[in-house]
Nucleic acid binder design. Structure first.
Lengths: 351, 351
DNA sequence: CTGTTAGCGCATTCAG
DNA sequence: CTGAATGCGCTAACAG
C-alpha cells in the first residue's frame, strides 16, 4: 500500500524512531542524518498517516468550524476569518481548519460535534445563533462540555454564552454579538425619524439571534410607548431573501399604512426591497427599510441600506486566535462585541 | 482518559469485537446483546476514537471540499450543495464533509490536499478555477493522482479537466463549466445590441476561469471583426467588488467613450455599477454592464444584472453524489455544464 | 452468532 | 544523538 515510516527508515538506513523525530522536529537529531532522512522522504513521496499519528500521539490537528449556512456570506466571512487565522500561520500552523455546514439543524450540529469529538479535534469554533428548542440547548451544552473535558478547545463566536456551569473559569470562551443593543438602537433611529407603524420581518422563532434582535426592537418600541400591536406587525420566516420578500408582502396586507420595515438581517432586507418595489412603493419615500449585519452588498443596494454593523471579520479572527490559544480569553470567558448603527439612504422620515 | 471500546465491552459483558460489530452494524449480532451493548454505550457516553478506527480499517469518513474563497457566495453555494448531498443522507451518511478554504493560493491548495491525504480522506471535491502558474498545475495534478492511487475519490467541480494521463478511464471525474461558451454568448448579446467599445474587467491573469471567460469574450469580438484594442480594454484585478470598482475607473480613463462593461463575474459587476454611478453614468442608458455566474443578488441589483447563469447548486449536488459514488461518472470522466445567458435590465443598445 | 488474536503506522519510553 | 521495544484503540480475519 502506501509508503510508511518504516519504508523511509529502511531507505535512509536509520530507525523509524529517527525518522519520526526529524519529521516532528521536536527532538535533537544530527544535521547529517536529518538531511538523509529528508531526502528519503522526498524520494519516496512519503506522507504521514494522520490516523496512526493521531492515535499514537492522542491528539489531532483538526479544527472544526461550525456554521449554520455556508452559502450565507455572514457565515462565509466569519469562517474565512477564523480559518485564515488558523491555517494562515507560517508553515500552515500544522492545523487543518475545516468548516462544517449544519444548515441550522440542531441534529446536524450535534452530529458534527460528535464527529469532531471522534476525530479528537484540537479545537471547535461554533458560529452564529443557536436553536432554543426543547432539549437541544442542553444537549449541545453537554456535548461541548464533553469536548472541553477531552481537551478540545471550544470557542463560541456570534452565539450567546452557555448557561454557567458553576465553578471557576468556564472552559468555553464566548464572543457574543450585542444583537439586542444593536437592534434597539436601530429601532430608536426609526422612531427618532418619526416612524410609528413599523413592521418587523425576521427568521425562525426558536433561535437566539431571532429572539435577541426582536427583544431589542421591542424594547425600543416600549420605551416610546408603542406596546400595541407589535405582535401583529412581526412576521417570522427564515433568514433568506425569499422569506423576506413574502413576509414583507404579508406585512403590507396586515398593515397597509406601514411606514417602515425592519428586517432581522440584510438578506431579508433585500427581499423587502424587492417586495416593496413590486408593490410600487418607493424606498425610503414611501417606506423606510433597515437591515442587520452590514454585509458587503448592503452598501451597494439602491438605496444604500441602513443597517447595524457587526465586525464579522474581526470577531472571526479573534475566535480563531482564541481557538489556537494565541490570545488570552476575556475575563469571565465572555466578551460582548459591539454592534454599530450605520445610517444610510434607505431610511428617512415618514411622509 | 476517554472511555474505550474495551470499557464498553466490559460493562456489557461481551467482547470488544462484539461491541465493534454492533457499532458498525455490518455484521449479524443477536438483538439481545445488541441492546445490551447499546445501553452500555449510552451509559458510558462512549464515542468512537476516529483515528484508531481509521487506522485499523485503513479508511476514514472524511470528505474534503476545497474552495478558493469561502466568503464568496459562488463557492458557498457549491460547497453547501456538495455538503448536503454528503451529510444529508439518512443517518448522516457517516461521512464528515468539511470545506477547506484555499484563499486561491496554490500553496494552500497543495497543503490542504496533503493534509487530506494524511487523513486518508474518502473523497475530495475541488471546486472553482485553477491556478495556471509554472509547476502548480503539474504539482496539483500529481497530488490528485496520488490521492486517487491511494483510493480517495477525486471530483473536480467548476474546474477544467486534468491533462489526460493516458490509459483508460480517468480516475478523477470532472464537472467543467462552459465558461468560454457562456462568455462568448454574453458578448455576442452586447454586440447584437450594437455595442462596439466594450471594456472587460476580470480577475487574476493566471487562473483558468479568467482565461476561459476572456477567450470566449474575445472570440465573440473577433467574429465581429473587432480585433483592435481588446488588450487595452481589458483590466485585470481580483474577483471582488473593490477590484471591479477600481478596474472600471481605469477602463473609463483608458476609453472615455466606452458603451459597455463586461465583468468576469457578478461581484466585479457590482463594483462596476458603483464606479459608473460615482462617475455620474447611468446604467444601462449610458453604459451597459454584464456579469457572470448569476449569484442570488444579481437579480436584485438595480438595474437587474444581465449575466450568465451557472447551475451552481445542481453542479455541487452532482459532484457530491459522484464523490459518494452514488452516481455514475459521465463518459470519459468529463461533463461540461452549460451556461445560460440571462438577459435583464442592465444591458441595452448604446446611445 | 460470539470470542480470540493479530496487526494498522506511528510516537515514545528506555537503553545504549 | 540513535535504535529497539511497547502500546495507542480499533477492525478483521480466524476459530469456535
Amino acid at each position: 500500500m502506501a509508503v510508511t515510516l518504516a519504508d523511509v527508515a529502511a531507505h535512509a538506513k536509520v530507525s523509524s524512531a529517527t525518522v519520526s523525530r526529524v519529521l516532528s522536529g521536536n527532538y535533537p537529531v544530527s544535521e547529517a542524518t536529518r538531511a538523509r532522512v529528508l531526502r528519503a522522504v522526498n524520494e519516496l513521496d512519503y506522507v504521514v498517516n494522520g490516523p496512526a499519528s493521531a492515535l499514537a500521539a492522542a491528539t489531532s490537528d483538526l479544527v472544526g468550524i461550525l456554521v449554520n449556512d455556508i452559502a450565507d456570506p455572514f457565515f462565509g466571512i466569519i469562517a474565512g476569518a477564523v480559518q485564515s487565522e488558523i491555517a494562515g500561520l507560517p508553515g500552515g500552523g500544522g492545523k487543518l481548519a475545516v468548516v462544517c455546514n449544519t444548515g441550522g439543524s440542531p441534529e446536524r450540529e450535534l452530529t458534527y460535534l460528535t464527529l469532531l469529538q471522534r476525530q479528537r479535534a484540537a479545537a471547535v469554533v461554533v458560529t452564529g445563533g443557536a436553536a432554543e428548542g426543547a432539549g437541544h440547548a442542553a444537549a449541545v451544552a453537554a456535548k461541548l462540555g464533553r469536548l472541553t473535558a477531552a481537551g478540545t478547545r471550544v470557542v463560541l463566536c456570534g452565539r450567546p454564552p452557555l448557561p454557567h456551569s458553576g465553578d471557576g473559569e468556564p472552559a468555553v470562551t464566548t464572543l457574543a454579538f450585542d444583537n439586542r443593543g444593536g437592534a434597539q438602537r436601530l429601532t430608536e433611529h426609526l422612531l427618532a425619524l418619526g416612524h410609528r407603524r413599523i413592521g418587523y420581518v425576521t427568521g425562525p422563532p426558536d433561535r437566539t439571534t431571532t429572539r435577541h434582535r426582536l427583544e431589542g426592537h421591542r424594547a425600543a418600541l416600549a420605551a416610546a410607548g408603542l406596546t400595541e400591536g407589535s405582535e401583529r406587525l412581526t412576521v417570522h420566516g427564515s433568514f433568506d431573501r425569499a422569506s423576506g420578500y413574502d413576509a414583507t408582502l404579508e406585512l403590507l396586507r396586515r398593515e397597509p399604512g406601514l411606514t417602515a420595515v425592519v428586517a432581522a438581517n440584510d438578506t431579508i432586507a433585500l427581499g423587502a426591497f424587492a417586495a416593496l418595489r413590486d408593490r410600487g412603493l418607493r424606498i425610503p419615500e414611501d417606506v423606510s427599510v433597515a437591515g442587520f449585519d452590514d454585509l458587503p452588498f448592503s452598501a451597494d443596494a439602491v438605496p444604500a441600506l441602513t443597517t447595524v454593523r457587526l465586525p464579522l471579520q474581526d470577531a472571526g479572527a479573534r475566535a480563531g486566535r482564541l481557538a489556537m490559544d494565541r490570545e488570552t480569553a476575556p475575563p469571565g470567558g465572555v466578551a460582548t462585541i459591539r454592534a454599530e448603527l450605520m445610517v444610510r439612504a434607505s431610511t428617512a422620515p415618514p411622509r
